[in-house]
Design a protein around this nucleic acid. Structure first.
Length: 586
DNA sequence: GCCGTTTTCGGCCCGACTGTTTTCAGTCG
């Protein structure tokens, strides 16, 4: 069993414990903490166990270390198996209903003996749920609503979908009289690849009256994209938007804005150690303020911005993307946070398609769109012949494409450069779809897996390692092949992949398509720390695809990347030199 | 279940909202 599988088991144990009657909430938290602590340790599980690295890691005590070692040696955790055996599936299903937590799940299960969500729905319709202790008509209706919502939507949304919805609402709200500050918060602000809901924080003048606040909330809940109102008050309103995403708007006086924004930006995992730090400095944080505690009395520490809050805690400002409790607080205390890459640092585009394969636009159109975006080069990478479904090119077609590129380059002169490239299929055995001499005729090569997703992890990893070791492969495309909310990636030992890429000087891209965002940000920092250059690539199949670069930048920032870590922040000459150096090592 | 430069026991981040009650439990972020 590898580390990720154990991390997964720890998370599962936390969920199962929460559904067990009479379990200790702090025990649940202990397993959640352990999952994150283990996940952020470097190295594979065998090494960690062998070298005794687990002991002394904060969050891993003697019991949990025993369980991790048990998983390593016997390939299962008996405690987990027992929990699974005693937890009815319907309890797990119910935990996905909004507003229904462990306590209510247990009440429903004990008293109504339902065995499926369908039976729960029937119980609601029979008016049996409303008569349970602590329940009522409204709770029952809410459960019914939740069940219907669950059946219609997966419970998460892609970043770009949520961002577009949020932006529409933001632009409307910002025009309203009385609005002082307005900002997206939550996981959307932290640029998570998928989000569950949208949080927004709005401030009005501290002296603004009830009428102003009510008018803003009224305006919000009457927006055309609001499909249903699930709550409306002067400080908080909740709605369901037309796409199905839930959205909360919080309204505060402007002096409270930074504290509230910070609170609702999260993450919960970031806040826990931050609050512990505050307590250690005789301060306490909540969504209304940062308070100095002296002789049992609380005095507000005045902050105009989030940066002031961090400063009061003797920390450098922590960008929202980094607030995931992966070491950002310690780094902020040491003044060691990275200066994060920005979209404006990007000099060019490195993975794009044209009508030569499955793109919608010609090379010229793609190039001109890049120029319009302010980029100075385009690395064109149409598919190779094995990708027949995508109109992949054979060596002959690739040569003719090169001639067209030569002509365009002559026309553009120094103003813009098109690189000859390919997105070459990695075949089943790890061999590339083009021979070395064909690859050598190109400026650079992206290699990707597009077939045989169902190999074993061992086979898939070996296949990838072989491609990484090919001296003509400059960049691995969408390395895990995942489609967010669509399909998981093929099984791959990413630690080995990163190790090999570092050894061979092969880049691993961040595929910026909002359905991919692959490499995952959780691995990016590891890759960076091994010295791997990471291009942010749009994998554009049409002009509009070039805009996706900004999603990739969001993920790059989440992965702690600085401008110098991102390959396509290099200018054209430096980029060509980089590719040249790699090949000359052959 | 984890943790400790006051502690090896008794804490563990904190407050709002909702719906249920009539002072509070459950859920959420």
């Amino acid at each position: 069993m590898d580390k990720n599988q154990v991390v997964n088991l720890m998370e599962q144990i936390a969920v199962l414990l929460a559904l067990k009657e009479g379990s200790n909430t702090f025990e649940i938290r202990a397993y959640e903490n352990a999952a994150r602590a283990l996940g952020s340790l470097d190295g594979d599980l065998a090494t960690l166990v062998r070298e005794g690295k687990l002991k002394g890691t904060p969050g891993l005590g003697s019991t949990i270390i025993k369980r991790i070692e048990e998983a390593f040696t016997t390939d299962h955790i008996q405690f987990y198996d027992e929990l699974v055996a005693e937890t009815p599936q319907v309890k797990l299903d119910m935990s996905r209903i909004p507003g229904v937590g462990p306590k209510r799940i247990n009440t429903i299960y004990q008293q109504l003996h339902v065995n499926s969500l369908a039976e729960l729905e029937q119980a609601c319709k029979d008016d049996r749920v409303a008569h349970l202790p602590g329940f009522g008509k409204k709770t029952q209706d809410k459960i019914l609503q939740g069940l219907s919502f669950l059946s219609q939507h997966a419970d998460r949304y892609l970043y770009d979908v949520a961002e577009a919805e949020a932006e529409r609402i933001r632009q409307a709200l910002v025009t309203q009289p009385g609005v002082v500050r307005l900002q997206v918060a939550g996981s959307l602000r932290r640029r998570r690849e998928t989000v569950k809901d949208i949080d927004m924080v709005l401030s009005v003048d501290d002296n603004a009256g009830s009428d102003v606040r009510r008018a803003i909330m009224e305006f919000f809940t009457s927006q055309p994209s609001v499909k249903a109102i699930t709550g409306q008050g002067e400080t908080k309103s909740s709605v369901i938007l037309s796409s199905g995403i839930a959205m909360d708007l919080r309204l505060v006086g402007d002096s409270q804005f930074p504290y509230t924004l910070h609170h609702f930006t999260g993450s919960r995992e970031h806040h826990i150690p931050l609050r512990r730090r505050a307590l250690g400095m005789n301060m306490t944080i909540n969504d209304y303020g940062l308070f100095k505690v002296e002789d049992g009395k609380e005095t507000l520490v005045p902050c105009k911005t989030e940066a002031d809050i961090y400063q009061a805690l003797q920390l450098d400002y922590i960008e929202p993307e980094l607030r995931e409790d992966t070491g950002e607080i310690e780094a902020a205390a040491r003044h060691a946070l990275p200066e994060l890459v920005k979209e404006s640092d990007l000099k060019g585009v490195l993975h794009a398609h044209s009508t030569w394969s499955d793109g919608k636009n010609s090379i010229r159109e793609m190039a001109e769109a890049c120029i319009a975006h302010g980029y100075s080069y385009l690395g064109l990478t149409d598919h190779s012949r094995a990708a027949a479904y995508a109109g992949g090119l054979n060596p002959e077609a690739l040569k003719r494409q090169g001639e067209e590129i030569d002509k365009l380059n002559q026309e553009f002169g120094d103003r813009f450069h098109i690189l000859k490239g390919t997105e070459c299929d990695i075949l089943r055995d790890g061999e590339l779809d083009f021979s070395d001499d064909v690859l050598a005729s190109l400026d650079f090569v992206v290699a990707s897996i597009h077939s045989n997703f169902n190999l074993s992890q061992e086979e898939q990893t070996q296949r990838m390692l072989r491609a990484i070791a090919n001296p003509y492969v400059d960049i691995i495309g969408h390395s895990t092949g995942r489609i967010l909310l669509g399909r998981p990636g093929y099984p791959l030992d990413m630690d080995q992949v990163i190790e090999a890429a570092a050894q061979h000087g092969t880049c691993i891209e961040i595929n910026a398509h909002p359905s991919r965002l692959d490499l995952d940000w959780r691995y990016i920092r590891k890759a960076r720390d091994k010295g791997i250059k990471i291009p942010v690539d749009p994998d554009a199949h049409a002009l509009a695809g070039i805009d996706d670069m900004r999603y990739g930048i969001g993920i790059a920032r989440k992965g702690w990347l600085r401008p110098q870590d991102v390959l396509n922040t290099l200018d054209f000459e430096a980029l060509m030199a980089f590719f040249h150096v790699k090949r000359s090592k052959k």
